[in-house]
């Protein structure tokens, strides 16, 4: 029995050795042919001067020393000038008498005129609402530019290790994603009563959606946020923001009375248009963040 095994294996090993020798010979022939082809190519190139080898362009790995010196001097001068500027302004923590005129009214009459307990929310969504309108459109512009650059239809995602197989992430996400989403909704809805608002709540919701997509995979997230739903909801939120602010500005500029009342401060349904605008801004920020993330990850929403 033993000798049979020994013969069997030595046959196999000899056979493999012969096979390896043949492969080695084949490899030699291939290498020789390859070098002959290169030699002929080089001859043709020199004879007919096709594809002259480019001059070796030396990419210097650092700037010339004069650039560093001049940049250093510039930076030191700028630092000294900036510190001198800042030191001649009012001190930190001291009341600045020039700013009192504007900020006092926001705090004093903010609750009465806008109905918002949070004076900052009242300021950005009522007194200075045009800036916030522009800001939402800055995010929209960024999403458009990223769409132009990164939108492809490629079907595969180049990943070394798909995160859906990481058990720690999946189990942690099962617990934390619902909490994050609910917390985001809480921050948005309570934006005018407590610290928070549309922008911070939208960022929290966007982060929750990104975690959901990473932990559970593209297909499940794609069923929840499809491209058509994404476009429709994003455009609807932006249109609602534009039209409601258009109504509010038109009514204010022409000294008409607005039909929207400010309600009693401190309740959730109050502060006029601030709550719906907070919700619209939250949706816009959340979807834009998620959209930009999807463009980077897989090239489409």
């Amino acid at each position: 029995m033993k000798s049979n095994f020994k013969d069997f294996f030595s046959e196999r090993i000899n056979g493999t050795k012969d096979w390896l020798e043949d492969v080695g010979k084949l490899d030699e022939t291939v290498t020789k042919t390859h070098s002959e082809i290169r030699h002929t190519e080089h001859l043709i190139n020199t004879l007919f001067e096709v594809n002259t080898p480019k001059k070796e362009k030396h990419v210097s790995s650092s700037f010339p020393i004069s650039y560093y010196i001049s940049a250093g001097i510039c930076i030191v001068v700028i630092l000294v000038v900036l510190i001198a500027t800042v030191c001649s302004l009012p001190e930190f923590g001291v009341v600045n008498s020039q700013m009192k005129e504007v900020s006092d009214r926001y705090v004093q009459s903010g609750m009465k005129e806008t109905g918002a307990v949070n004076a900052v929310a009242g300021m950005i969504l009522d007194y200075r609402a045009f800036d916030t309108l522009g800001e939402s459109f800055v995010l929209f512009t960024a999403l458009n530019c990223v769409w132009i650059l990164l939108r492809t239809n490629r079907s595969s995602v180049e990943r070394y290790f798909p995160l859906t197989e990481d058990n720690i992430l999946v189990q942690a996400a099962k617990v934390s994603v619902p909490v994050i989403l609910v917390y985001g909704i809480y921050v948005i809805i309570n934006g005018h009563i407590s610290p928070g608002g549309g922008f911070s709540g939208g960022a929290i919701l966007g982060a929750g959606l990104i975690l959901f997509s990473e932990a559970f995979g593209d297909e499940i997230a794609g069923k929840f946020v499809t491209e058509k739903r994404f476009k429709v909801i994003c455009s609807a939120a932006l249109l609602f923001y534009c039209l409601s602010k258009a109504y509010s500005f038109y009514v204010g500029a022409n000294h008409l009375d607005s039909i929207i009342s400010t309600g009693t401060p401190g309740r959730i349904i109050s502060a006029g248009l601030i709550l719906p605008l907070d919700i619209a801004v939250g949706i816009i920020v959340c979807l834009n963040m998620y959209g930009i993330y999807c463009m980077f990850k897989k090239g489409r929403v």
Binding site: V102, R105, Y106, E113, Y127, F130, G252, A253
Partner: peptide, 13 residues
Amino acid sequence: HYVLGHFPAPWGN
């Protein structure tokens, strides 16, 4: 001047 909203300068836009 066209006031955007119900509040004139310097409090509104």
